[in-house]
């Protein structure tokens, strides 16, 4: 069993839901990333989504765009991100790390070269926003050769037939985008999420994470009552953006701890 599967399986045994924070590698500066990753784990993160900075982050709202721009100002590229994961792995061999980003840095490195280097660094899963199932047969093959999970997005507008297509390819977990829009938006309709997740669960066997628009403990708790994992990105990036550097780690720690506590209060639905 790989790190993602064993994480979900041990959480399941404890009746707990996964907390998946997202940060952009290299934000606010490259030297902080590995320290932040350890801090996230210490505060209760189960899986870390690590954003690969890209010059044109089309699916992201202003908060994550700015984090990408800050990282790019330090020249952080995909190879640097892999080096950060390798550094993190020296002290943490259990917490899964999922890279999240856009296609072109992968295209530039080559599928095979990337997949081999990613495995070497200790990456567990990869979510490329603009590789939908139709365009990624070879990409998925190369990841699977290296036992890396391809993570896919599902959205409120994904029809059933496409959920079935994703079900065939998805490993690790799927990431349900809980609203129409970009990351960091503020509205999230729990009734819609509940309804759609029931439909998705009937088709997909891997765990379901929900993200986009989760900004506070109350929403995190509510989502944890419906999904297997709660993904929080922009809210954490805001903390990184606004905190003076001397208290950045402790501010992020408190935020993630509060999200952890909220999620752990959620009752596990009877399945």
């Amino acid at each position: 069993m790989n790190r993602i599967a064993s994480t979900f399986s041990s959480l399941g045994a404890q009746n707990k839901k996964a907390l998946i924070p997202f940060i952009t590698a290299g934000d606010p500066e490259p030297a902080m990333t590995v320290r932040l990753m350890h801090e996230l784990v210490q505060a209760g993160a189960d899986i870390i989504e690590l954003g690969v900075p890209f010059s044109d982050p089309m699916a992201d709202g202003p908060t994550i765009q700015r984090s990408s721009e800050r990282a790019l100002q330090h020249g952080v590229g995909l190879k640097d991100v892999l080096a950060m994961v390798a550094e993190f792995r020296k002290a943490d061999q259990t917490t899964p790390v999922v890279l999240m980003g856009y296609a072109n840095p992968i295209e530039a490195m080559g599928y095979q070269g990337f997949a081999m280097a990613a495995r070497e660094s200790g990456v567990d899963g990869v979510l490329i926003v603009d590789y939908p199932p139709e365009e990624c047969e070879e990409w998925v093959n190369q990841l699977e050769h290296q036992s890396i999970d391809p993570i896919f997005l599902l959205s409120p507008t994904t029809p059933k037939a496409r959920v079935e297509k994703v079900a065939k390819l998805a490993k690790g977990y799927v990431y349900y985008v809980s609203l129409k829009g970009v990351t960091g938006a503020s509205h999230l309709d729990l009734t819609d999420v509940r309804k759609k997740l029931a439909e998705v669960r009937a088709i997909i066997s891997v765990p379901i994470g929900v993200g986009f628009g989760i900004r506070d403990g109350a929403t995190a708790k509510a989502v944890a009552g419906l999904a297997d994992a709660v993904v929080v990105g922009s809210r954490i990036i805001e903390e990184i953006e606004n905190a003076p550097s001397d208290i950045l780690l402790s501010n992020v720690n408190s935020l993630v701890k509060s999200l952890r506590a909220a999620i752990d209060q959620a009752a596990v639905p009877l399945s």
């Binding site: 296609a103 590789y131 939908p132 896919f152």
Partner: peptide, 8 residues
């Protein structure tokens, strides 16, 4: 090559 949210 777009995010799932635009496919539909």
């Amino acid at each position: 090559f777009v995010a799932e949210t635009l496919i539909a």
